[in-house]
Structures are given as C-alpha cells and as structure tokens.
Design a protein around this nucleic acid. Structure first.
Length: 738
DNA sequence: CTCGCCGGCGCC
DNA sequence: AAACGGCGCCGGCGAG
C-alpha cells in the first residue's frame, strides 16, 4: 500500500550566498500544505521537521535544489533521504515545470503573452531563467510574488531572535513594514504551492522527476565548486597583459586601438572595407558616416556603411553581417590581404582572454567558483550561469583549474556521442541505420566515410591514418567535418564558411583538390603572402550566391566539393534521406513543428526543419548524459560501498561528466564512473553498441587528457608531454618565450 | 545611469 | 526549394 503523502511547498530563508559558499546557514523555513495552510519554522526547528517529513512527503519548491543543498550541508545524515526523495520522483520544482511546459510550446524564456523576453517583476531584469516571481506572474497573473521583501536579503539579522520578536526587531531596524518580515517567507511558500497547483495541466511534467533530480546533482557539483591555481593564473595574466600591451603599441598609430587598448570599431571597419576594395561615397550618409536618428534626432552611426562613409556595394567580396553591416571578424581580417589587419586578427582572441576569461579565473584563486546550473534549455541540454562549459581548450586556460590537495580530476566523455544518438534516432525513425552498423563494428566513423569516398577499403584507408599519411588525414578531416555538420541539415555554404572560420579548414585543400601555390611552390608553413602559408590556393574564385541564396563570399571550388561531400555523405549513411524526410514532414508547417523526444517523451514545439533536425539526437545525448550524472552522483553521495563514494561530480559538459575524486581511490572510482556512463548510454541507445567510455585522470584540467595505465595496470593521472627543460605556462618559474 | 540589441567569440 | 543546433559573456552603441 502506498503510504499517505504530505504535500509541502518548502522554502528557506538563509544568510546570503557568498563567493565560495552556495549553502549558507538557514535562518527560518516556510512551508505550505496543499490547502494553503502555512507556517514558519525557526532555525532550530528546521532540521528535525525536515528529517521527520523527508521520506514521506512530496516536496515542492522554486529552485528547491538550493534548499536541499542547505539542508544537506547542515545535516549530512539527511543527504541519503534527499536522494531517495529525488529517486522516487517526490520532488517538484515549479521553475523546471515552467521551463518544461515552455519547451513544449516553443516559448522557452519568452513571455507567451507578448512574445518578448521574460522580465522578472521583482528585479526588473531579463535572464534566461525562471524565478518564483516570473512563474507567479506567468501562472497566476500576479506580479506581487515578492511583496513584503524588505527582509529578503536581511534574514541573517534575525538569527537567534525568537519568531515572536521578529516584528519588533524589524521595527527597531527601521523597517517600515515590520509585519512583512514574517509575511514574506509565508508568501514564498504559498506562492510556490499555488504555482504548482496552477501547473497541473502543464506539458512535459513526466520529465519532472528526471530533471529535478538532475538539477540537484548539478547543484551539488556547483556547491563543491572549482578552484584555480594562483600561480598559473598569475603567469597567464602576465602573458596576456604583455600581448595586450604589445598590441596597443602596434596598433595605436593606425587608430585601431587607443592608449587604453579600447578598439575604434569605425576605424577597423573602414580599413576592412577598404582592404576588400570599397571605394566611393556611401549614398546614405554622403561619406560622413553619420546620419540623423529618426527617433532621437541625434547624429548616429550610418548603418548602411557601418559608419565607414564608403560605398559598401562597390566591394563585392566584402563579408557582411546578418544585418548587412561590414563584418570585421577574425576570418574577414585574416583574409583581407592587408598586413596590418591580418596581424590584428589575433587581438580579438587576446581581448577575449583578457576581458572574459581572466576575471573568471581570478575568482577561483580566492575561493571556489560556484557556477549556477540551469538544468534544461530548449534542446534538453544544460547551461550554467558562469563560464564553466565555455573554457577555451587552448592557451593554458583549462590548466589553471586544479583539484583539491589529495584529489584528482576525472573526465569521462562519450566518443562521438551525437553520432551514436543520431544512429539510435534513425533506428527508431527509419528502422535501420548504416551509421549504427558502423558504430557497432567499432569503426572510426570519419575513416569509414573517407574510405568510401576514396574508393578504398576501410582497412586500407585506416592503415594510412595509422601511418599518419598526410593525404588520408586531409580527407578524414573533411569527412569528420561532414559527419558533424550535415546531420543538422547544414548546407554547403555554411559548411564551407564555418569550417574556414572555426578550424581554418579549407575543404578544397583538405580534399587534396586545390592547386599548388605558384609563389611558394607548395611549401607549407612559411610566410607566403599568396597562400597564407598553406601551400595550396583556396578561393581563387569567390561567389556571393549559392543555391539561389545570398552567401558570404566563399571559395567556389570549396562549395562544389562540399556539395559532392554532402552527396557522398548521403550515400555513406543512406538512412539520412529518410531521416530528413521525417523531420521535414513533422516540421514543415509554418506554424511550427512539434517533436517528441524518444525515451523521455519530452515535447519540443515551434520547430523549423533545422532545429527539428538537431533536437532529437542532441536531446537524446543530453538526456543520457544527465542520467549518467544521476547514477554517478547517487553512488558518490549515498553508497559507502561504491568506489565512487565521496567523489564529487562537478559538471556536465554536454558529452562529458567531469568530477573530482580522492586520489587514493581514483582507479576504481574512475572506472566506475565510466561504467555508469556506459550503463546510461545503453538505456537511451538500446540498439547501438559503441566503444566503451574510458576515464582520464588529471592533476590539472586539460583537453588532451586521456586514459593512462600505470605499470600495475591501475589508472594513473595523465600528464602533458614535456620537452627537455620545458617549463609549462602554468608552472612556477615560467618565463614567456621572447 | 541602465537597458536591450548587435557583433563577436568561447564551448559542445 | 533550401536552410546545422544549443548556450553565456564581452564591448560598443542608441535610447530613455
């Protein structure tokens, strides 16, 4: 017989969140039952009450992972029961419920009443996140969820004061609405319960158990946090500041940078437009670069010429932005043929590191960085407020992150995860899959495609790859790009442009189809102005239109070869035509398509063919990675007999679970983490059997880390290869090369 | 001053 | 007909 359940909306008032402390001590709790009966619990009452109710109640909250995090921090013995509640699907989060419903309707982080962005009625801010205020507004039509909020950020002032004395205490502190001090928490609990009741008809609620549980696991990772190495960060800062200072010197005379290092975008765009051959006078601003605003009457930048004053239309190969302005991104600069602009192309990277990543790294030298997780975005993936999923792979940035003394980082990432989930999705939609067969045969998927394309057997081609044959590597690289890009319905134009911009990959050169550079006679890596050191010539002819659509100026030869590559890709994975037919059928409606995620049954609405083509396999990958995180976290926090006991799973990085674990037990723990990743995949991809996941242990974060077996067969931490005498950038005593 | 938007760029 | 997707954060600009 099912035990009778209590329904509790639950909310804690705590001291403020501080850097390094996501679980500050609680001051009081407020609870509401389903009938709206509310009460406040003083600090000493909280833990006994929670302990009594935890196993037998349904828990409702707004970001309730935070509240449970506080409970767990001050009463570790309750952590098992918290996990039990999540495992049994007894935790309902109104913020997640709102996101799930919005995903089904295609209105995530939008106000369905206006179509515009969401604005928090309390803070007035817009964020990609649902708060109690926003949910109260959307579900109950009230913007007053956070009335009586004088004490909202001041509850620490009430610690130790008996509840009966709060009103008087608040008055003594100068509060004009002293009764609000006890009303505010009651409102929070009451509003939370009312929202939950109002959400009963919402879509996708079958996902609540999995998503709220995942949010809890992610929150635990964030509570543990990430530390950075003060030495490594200081070294990095020295290097970046030196590069920046040099850039200021190099580019001051041209006006690209001022003495503070701030960029003059107008100068930059004018130089770019000129380099691409723009001449004459802009017809809109008559060369001044300024026009009068219709709205304010003030002189503003001319949009037609991006304030350059030049006639943009006179430069047919000039790359433009989405809104028709002069594009001055790294790709445009490095292709401009202008020495100064080409050398300036690196500055954007320096500034990104200096202005975005360095401040983030510096936070972690003082206390753990706690990024706030967002458990679900449109395609089912996660995000974090904070840069932890976006740390550059190169440049010694990741190496600034360190586990605690006596701990190691452990990474388990799924090889070619989205290829695997795509194969599974095709098994379900089409009924068969060449991709699935190649994965089951444990083939290298890019080599498999490349072999077919070149008329060789797989073994023959793969042998060339193992022998590091340059020709074969080029073909495989193009095929890899195809395998990653085309499943999302990518076209030739975007394919060529994105590979060029992101990976500096020229399709025509990679496929061995480009003519040799006559200036350097095909010698690669030298400072040849004709071919940019590539040895071969790309973009001898550029076109600005492809398949009757305008496109950024692109090498015609690359486009033709990309079309061939796409044809070959359809031939290689012959289920893809049927797969796209299905997506087109489901998502062709101008009103927007709606697809249901396999396994989780999560609906996603308002789809066009492109996001429709992506969402099933990327969502399946996200769902299975989340399941892996839950399996790992459960053992780590609740099972003393597991090798994973006391491991701290820190983050999901889409196809990777990243954790910190005690070094003494790391061998067994890492393999257990990998094993649970395999289990998760098997549940979500029952018809595909890819290679097993392998763990990598590290003393310092690195993209290059991989499994290393010690002499006794036990895992040991991966370390980067060191040349004789080399001191790494993140080590004491590092000096930058001249 | 703050806010939203754009261009740009980091990740998977 | 053809069209990759999903994020967060920065500086600069325009408007109120």
């Amino acid at each position: 017989m099912t035990p009778e359940r209590n329904y509790w909306a639950f909310d804690l008032e705590t001291d403020l969140i501080m850097p390094g402390l996501l679980a500050p001590p609680p001051v009081c709790a407020s609870v509401s039952d389903a009938k709206g009966a509310k009460k406040i619990l003083a600090d000493a009452e909280i833990l006994p009450w929670v302990a009594h109710e935890l196993d037998r109640s349904i828990w409702i909250g707004a970001n309730i992972a935070y509240d449970f995090g506080v409970i767990g921090a001050y009463s570790p013995s309750l952590v098992r029961s918290i996990f039990k509640a999540y495992r049994e699907g007894r935790v309902f989060d109104i913020q997640i419920a709102q996101a799930l419903d919005a995903i089904a309707k295609g209105t995530l982080f939008k106000d369905p009443r206006t179509g515009g962005g969401l604005k928090d009625p309390t803070t007035g801010k817009s964020k990609n996140r649902y708060s109690l205020s926003i949910v109260t507004d959307l579900v109950l039509g009230r913007k007053d969820a956070k009335a009586n909020d004088w004490a909202r950020l001041r509850y620490s002032l009430f610690r130790g004061v008996p509840l009966a004395g709060w009103t008087e205490h608040a008055r003594a502190l100068g509060c004009v609405d002293p009764e609000g001090v006890t009303q505010y928490p009651l409102d929070d609990a009451g509003n939370t319960m009312s929202c939950a009741l109002g959400q009963r008809g919402h879509e996708n609620l079958q996902e609540m158990a999995a998503q709220s549980y995942t949010a809890w696991c992610m929150h635990l990772g964030s509570m543990w946090g990430r530390r950075t190495d003060p030495v490594a960060v200081a070294n990095l800062k020295t290097i970046i500041e030196a590069k920046h200072a040099k850039a200021v010197i190099d580019f001051k005379a041209s006006g690209l940078l001022d003495e503070n290092g701030d960029e003059d975008q107008i100068v930059k765009k004018r130089m770019v437009a000129t380099a691409y051959g723009a001449t004459g006078i802009c017809p809109a601003c008559v060369g001044s670069g300024k026009v009068i605003s219709e709205k304010s009457g003030n002189p503003i930048q001319c949009k037609v010429c991006s304030a350059t004053g030049l006639n943009i239309a006179s430069a047919p190969t000039l790359k433009l932005t989405d809104t028709g302005g002069v594009c001055a991104d790294r790709d445009a600069l490095s292709e401009s043929g202008d020495d100064l602009l080409e050398s300036y192309a690196d500055v954007s990277n320096i500034n990104k590191l200096r202005n975005t990543y360095l401040p983030f790294l510096e936070l972690g030298t003082k206390q753990p960085v706690n990024v706030q997780p967002n458990v679900i975005v449109e395609n089912g993936r996660t995000s974090y407020e904070g840069l932890i999923q976006l740390i550059p792979r190169q440049g010694g940035i990741r190496e600034c992150f360190l586990p605690r003394e006596g701990w190691l980082y452990c990474s388990t990432d799924y090889p070619a995860l989205e290829m695997t989930t795509l194969a599974q999705v095709c098994m379900w939609i089409v009924g068969w899959s060449q991709l699935q067969q190649a994965i089951d045969a444990k083939l290298d998927l890019h080599s498999a495609f490349a072999a077919k394309l070149t008329g060789k057997s797989y073994d023959e081609f793969y042998a060339l790859i193992l022998a590091k044959d340059k020709w074969a590597k080029g073909i495989r690289q193009a095929c890899k790009a195809a395998n990653f890009g085309f499943p999302g319905y990518m076209g030739a134009a975007r394919f060529v442009a994105s590979k060029r911009a992101q990976e500096n990959l020229r399709i025509c050169i990679s496929l061995g189809q480009a003519p040799k550079c006559e200036t350097c006679q095909g010698v690669e890596g030298i400072d040849c102005k004709r071919c940019y050191g590539r040895g071969f010539l790309c973009a001898l002819v550029k076109v600005t239109e492809w398949n009757n659509r305008k496109t950024t100026p692109t090498c015609k030869h690359c486009l033709e070869l990309a079309e061939d590559l796409k044809k070959g890709w359809f031939a290689q994975w012959s289920e893809m035509k049927s797969y796209f037919d299905f997506i087109k059928k489901q998502c062709a409606s101008p009103l927007g398509g709606k697809l249901r995620q396999f396994v989780s049954n999560r609906w996603r609405g308002n789809l066009d063919v492109m996001n429709g083509a992506n969402t099933l396999f990327s969502g399946l990958a996200a769902d299975l990675a989340k399941y892996a995180l839950r399996l790992i976290s459960d053992e780590a926090y609740t099972d003393e007999n597991s090798a994973l006991w006391e491991t701290r799973p820190l983050e999901l990085i889409h196809d990777e679970v990243f954790s910190e674990m005690p070094e003494a037990r790391a061998h067994a723990a890492a393999w257990r983490q990998a094993e649970l990743c395999d289990q998760a995949l098997a549940r979500y991809c029952p018809d595909v059997k890819p290679k097993n996941v392998e763990p990598a242990l590290m003393r310092r974060w690195s993209k290059d880390a991989e499994r290393v077996d010690g002499p006794d067969g036990k895992l040991i931490p991966w370390t980067p290869k060191r040349k004789p005498g080399e001191v790494f950038m993140w080590e004491p005593g590092y000096t930058a090369a001249a």
